[in-house]
Write a protein that binds this DNA or RNA. Structure first.
Lengths: 233, 233
DNA sequence: CGGATCATTGACTGGTGTCAACTTAGGTGG
DNA sequence: CCACCTAAGTTGACACCAGTCAATGATCCG
């Protein structure tokens, strides 16, 4: 199968490090999989059996504390790697926020190929380091920031990931995007309740920093002010 | 220099992956460095110039939000790797909690050696994956847990890292250890204030779950109850 | 003994969580 | 096409946990 050669994320996923024949080797183990919105791919507390790449769609990694409250640990976009390679159990669930397509491997297959391909491991290392940076940045948010600051930070991050600048460089002018998140999802990312998220969005809209034409559409009207707000006015 | 061969963390640090001659190669670039308690080794927002291994002592990684509040992102113990390899800036400061000894490399030197030694990168990858797991676990704490739950979780983690079991297997019987942390340090790890930490410790002591013979010594008297408390009674 | 630092305790405030009512949007079927 | 139903979001009232500010207490060291 030459599915890999024409893969939408061929250039950006970790597979990019592989030569054509190595890619061929890996592709034999891979399996394309469609995931419906809301469906969970891997479960917390389960032996980590699957790893893979996101080809299309958005997924969340999450963990739940005993009282049933979920905390989102990360968001996976196309070309991101998901799962926990190298022999330990997974501490997170992976759930699709939108309909999605992923390319999965059993952990054992992937581990074996990775061990034989330093380039692949190097890519994975870089990605993991970036994930770690991001997780730690989020720790500052969860540990120190107030509700408005969290929401503002979240909207800015979403804007820079998903946003179309109305202007040229994206630095100024309204930025508009459609969230793949419901309010509950946002709450789980930010460690807040759905009500608090809603109130802060209302507040930011009232101050004219953002607009919300529909529930899931967001327009950032005043990026600088929103940034100031995100850093503690 | 054969310093590496007799290094205290030879068997447990990432260098363990290197053969004797490769170790010799790396050791030429390495530099042993003593760090005083309170001293900062690397700074947030600074181009990441140094990486290294902790040989002795305990250090913290931290980041500060604009309002001057610090959040601790991780704790580094002997044989842990610190710093951000592979060409990006560092988003964290590294500060010694106790007098410490580290073995440092310039990022450039380390990167070059790593590229030539897949085994080293593999070790580093495993370590980074473990750090990521730990950071995400901490995100649940910061996002979802109450003050008592945070303090209980912290004490349990410290107990399992630093603790001497009074009994045989460590599962029951009092666990005693000396914290390398002051109250302010604990507060920064848990995303709380020093007063709240103090109150929760007092509360746990009042309930007989722990004891604090001195400010920095902790005895876990009832491990099971403390675990229940850490998970939301 | 006195000073400095760190930890504890108290009184008060305020931001979020909680619970409940209400509104809006979207989809289905008559 | 409209009526209705359901799910999602918003808003309000209130309680409570943790932050803030300030005073007191303990410990260490000169």
């Amino acid at each position: 199968m030459d599915a890999c050669a024409h893969c939408a994320v061929r250039e950006s996923a970790i597979c990019h490090s592989l030569s054509d024949d190595k890619l061929e080797e890996l592709s034999r183990f891979g399996r394309r999989q469609n995931v419906r919105r809301g469906q969970t791919l891997m479960w917390e507390d389960e032996e980590s059996l699957l790893v893979g790449n996101v080809i299309d769609g958005v997924l969340k990694l999450s963990a739940s504390s005993r009282n049933g409250c979920d905390q989102t640990l990360g968001i996976a976009y196309p070309s991101d790697f998901i799962g926990r390679p190298f022999g330990r159990r997974s501490y997170q669930s992976v759930t699709a926020l939108t309909d999605a397509q992923v390319c999965t491997f059993t952990r054992a297959d992937f581990d074996a190929v990775a061990q034989r391909n330093p380039g692949l491991e190097h890519k994975l290392l870089q990605r993991t380091l970036a994930d770690l940076d991001h997780a730690r940045q989020w720790m500052v948010l969860l540990g120190q920031k107030s509700a408005v600051e969290r929401v503002a930070t979240f909207l800015l991050e979403m804007g820079s990931r998903l946003g179309q600048a109305g202007d040229d460089d994206g630095a100024r002018g309204p930025i508009e995007f459609e969230l793949p998140f419901g309010r509950q999802d946002i709450a789980e990312v930010l460690g807040l309740t759905i009500e608090t998220v809603s109130r802060q969005i209302t507040k930011l809209r009232g101050e004219g920093l953002i607009d919300t034409p529909t529930k899931r559409k967001v327009v950032i009207r005043d990026r600088e002010a929103l940034e100031a707000c995100a850093d503690g006015s």
